[in-house]
Write a protein that binds this DNA or RNA. Structure first.
Lengths: 135, 135
DNA sequence: CCGTATCCAAGTCGATACTG
DNA sequence: CAGTATCGACTTGGATACGG
């Protein structure tokens, strides 16, 4: 029977998911949180597989959400520095919770499927139907 | 200067994001958490805009992650019931945190951009560059 | 009733070339 | 140095139509 949990999530969670969802957002935040202010080129070096286009767009989205701030220095050569905002620090507990849960969840999946579980949920999971002749 | 936060997120968060990321996953969980066991058709009625295909696929992914369980009753007419697993309850604090953060974040965005902020971050945010003549 | 198959539109991400 | 523009591959979500 139900446990009447009443989570009442009006799906405000979407707003946060949007911040964290991009493929590179979390790595970028990791860099900025642990290294402080970084230049565009430093970020590129720290995250070798990211393209300039991706780095730019993800940074712009984070900037829009007031998570990172962008300082443009008008000199030659051009120099743009990024850092996390004060506001971004409120994200930390959530990020930690997410990472803790993620780590445990991977273990949980291993217990269920063995070491060779697929990270991405398969289209047709191989779990057998549990049948019951209820009604 | 840096505050040496050392979040060390090896991006295990991805595993959780995958659970929560689908367009309908959170609404489905909301339903199952507050109503307990529900039939496929009940879920469809509770979430009018979802298609059968989407409902099926999202439920299968949640099932793969051991978040919902699927009970098939082999009688006529067919009857399939879904409910959240024991394991799923561990998600609740995270979900609550996500929702609380989301709610506050929407307020934060309103303070910055006014009531008419765009939910989705625009490609080119209209925030002016903050220039500094450093170097 | 509870799905699957097929097709299609939209969005995401990467590679590459060009610019202030 | 720090981007923007353009294109294409791949993925996601939606609209049907059909099957057990």
């Amino acid at each position: 029977m139900t446990e009447e949990i009443e989570l009442s999530m009006d799906c405000k969670a979407e707003a946060v998911l949007e911040i964290l969802a991009g493929k590179w957002k979390r790595v970028i935040l990791e860099q900025l949180f642990s290294n402080g202010t970084m230049r565009f080129s430093e970020l590129r070096r720290a995250i070798p597989d990211i393209t300039k286009k991706m780095l730019t767009s993800q940074l712009r989205e984070l900037e829009y959400h007031d998570i990172v701030s962008r300082q443009v220095h008008l000199d030659v050569p051009p120099k743009v520095e990024y850092s996390v905002t004060e506001y971004a620090h409120r994200l930390i507990p959530l990020l930690e919770g997410l990472n803790r849960w993620g780590t445990e969840h991977i273990e949980h999946l291993k217990e269920i499927y063995g070491e060779e579980y697929a990270a991405k949920s398969p289209a047709r999971p191989r779990r057998p139907d549990r049948a019951a002749t209820g009604e």
